[in-house]
């Protein structure tokens, strides 16, 4: 069920996620210095093309990476195969992408 195409997609999405995760953690540590407020966060992210691209690519990479991983788990543990498995993989991808995109837009739109 895991061919070279899915394998490479999962590895490349992991490579994208790794620096973004470190960046996310670094910003979290920076942001909580001297207290944390919604205004402070939104002041940084709203209208920012940089943060839109930062978290937008994060969400895209996570959606791809997690969908492939969950696809393997349900296939091996629940025996899902064929079209059902394909639909499951795409459904996880689209749900994660939609939820993530909603969150990114919510904090970057002005």
């Amino acid at each position: 069920m895991m061919d070279i195409r899915l394998y490479m997609l999962q590895r490349i999405s992991a490579l994208i996620m790794a620096p973004l995760t470190l960046g996310h953690i670094a910003v979290m540590i920076y942001a909580i210095q001297g207290g944390l407020s919604a205004d402070e966060i939104l002041g940084r992210t709203q209208g920012s093309v940089f943060w839109f691209l930062f978290y937008g690519s994060f969400v895209a990479a996570v959606s791809i990476h997690a969908a492939i991983g969950l696809r393997v788990i349900v296939s091996e543990w629940l025996g899902l195969r064929g079209m059902v498995l394909t639909v499951f993989g795409w459904a996880v991808f689209l749900v994660l992408l939609a939820m993530g995109a909603q969150a990114v837009l919510a904090v970057t739109q002005t």
């Binding site: 069920m1 895991m2 061919d3 070279i4 899915l6 394998y7 393997v72």
Partner: peptide, 9 residues
């Protein structure tokens, strides 16, 4: 070894 049953599993 790159197909659905290949080494990447």
């Amino acid at each position: 070894v790159s197909g659905v049953g290949g080494c990447h599993n």
